[in-house]
Design a protein around this nucleic acid. Structure first.
Length: 362
DNA sequence: CTAGTGTTTCCTGTTT
DNA sequence: TAAACAGGAAACACTA
């Protein structure tokens, strides 16, 4: 995934999706890059996202967390390398953001890159921790999506392969590399982290031309026919392997390597804690039968997002969370509740959800 | 270093 | 028809 400088993100056409955007108060740039296919796909993705409540408010009135969420949404929707973003932006409020020119935004980013590269190991680590702490303290639904750059940086060749195929099938891809089989991971890795976004690569897309040599998708042995007669890639079963991060430049990677999952943070404990603390529940889950330990997901995707936030995984879904829940049946941490959707029951190997009265047998 | 654990990711097929 | 459920397979992060 190519890195883009912040200014290019902010000035690109995908901003049109925002009802309210600080850049609307800025003068139009001399030359705008055209929207590319990935931006189109991310636009549709972002448009479907809910919870971008800051859009309802004038940017001049945004607090720092509004600005951060706005940045986070851009990071997510444009797949920018989050390491290229300025930490100073994270503490900027709406009025300050509106006062910045495009040039300043661009310079700010260059400055950030220089600052990060000149930091010593401990300083960098501390900076990451501060940012992490700040992000962790933001309340749901403000997700810490600024880390998406790391996830995208770690995206494997296969991920790109299939993702492009799924999301961009009907779009003209322009000079996108053929990722089928002949490019090594290291090549991909280095090219995907080559720094600034290359606008020249968009030239043929702007004019609607597409080099036939790079036409996409390619029909190969890995393609299968769908019911509708379309051809798509057949993805191998199982979790796709991650690409080596040797060449990645994300500032968050050092941090993640030494990040150990603390004990007591298992999924079932997370679920239990939501149920046990109504003040944190916000209608996400409820007890169906308190005494029997039967509970129900009321906002399944929201719970999944919270779980993902806790695990620093912005792509968590209820589908994935529920798979992990189903593994608990065998371990008797959960018991099956047949015929009732979104309903689970704590099993004999779970603990901590019973009240004092229940433990006393009352 | 290795094996094990607890997910996470993706899939196909089934049920509601 | 969509959402949820079921469970196989494989990968990953981390622990012991």
């Amino acid at each position: 995934m190519s890195s883009q400088c912040l200014s290019s993100i902010l000035t690109s056409a995908n901003l049109a999706m925002y009802q309210t955007d600080p850049l609307e108060v800025l003068p139009p740039p001399q030359q705008l890059p055209s929207i590319n296919s990935l931006q189109i796909s991310s636009l549709s993705y972002s448009s479907s996202m809910s919870g971008q409540w800051y859009r309802q408010v004038s940017p001049h009135c945004w607090a720092a967390e509004h600005v951060l969420e706005w940045i986070s949404d851009h990071v997510e929707s444009t797949k920018v390398d989050a390491s290229t973003l300025s930490l100073a932006l994270c503490s900027m409020d709406g009025p300050a953001l509106c006062q910045m020119s495009r040039e300043q935004l661009s310079l700010q980013e260059h400055k950030t890159k220089y600052e990060l590269h000149s930091l010593s190991g401990p300083e960098l680590s501390e900076t990451c921790q501060l940012l992490d702490h700040f992000l962790d303290n933001l309340n749901y639904p403000l997700l810490s999506t600024i880390r998406i750059g790391q996830a995208e940086g770690a995206m494997s060749k296969r991920d790109l392969d299939y993702r492009d195929d799924y999301e961009l099938t009907s779009l003209s891809m322009g000079p996108l590399e053929d990722l089928s089989d002949n490019q090594s991971d290291s090549e991909l890795s280095s090219s995907s982290n080559s720094g600034m976004f290359d606008f020249s690569s968009l030239s043929s897309q702007e004019s609607g031309e597409s080099d036939p040599e790079f036409s996409f998708p390619l029909i190969s042995k890995n393609h299968i026919k769908t019911e509708k007669g379309e051809s798509r890639l057949k993805r191998p079963r199982g979790r796709p392997p991650k690409v080596s991060r040797e060449h990645s430049c994300s500032i968050y990677e050092n941090h993640k390597k030494k990040q150990h999952a603390p004990r007591g943070t298992h999924l079932w404990e997370f679920i239990r804690d939501i149920l046990m603390h109504p003040e944190r529940n916000q209608g996400l889950m409820k007890w169906e039968d308190r005494r029997e330990g039967v509970f129900k997901f009321l906002k399944s995707e929201a719970v999944a997002q919270m779980w993902g936030q806790k695990k620093k995984n912005s792509s968590m879904t209820y589908e994935k969370l529920s798979r992990a829940m189903r593994y608990y049946y065998k371990r008797e941490i959960l018991e099956r509740v047949d015929g009732r959707r979104l309903v689970y029951k704590f099993g004999k190997n779970s603990n901590g959800w019973k009240t004092e009265e229940m433990r006393m047998g009352m």
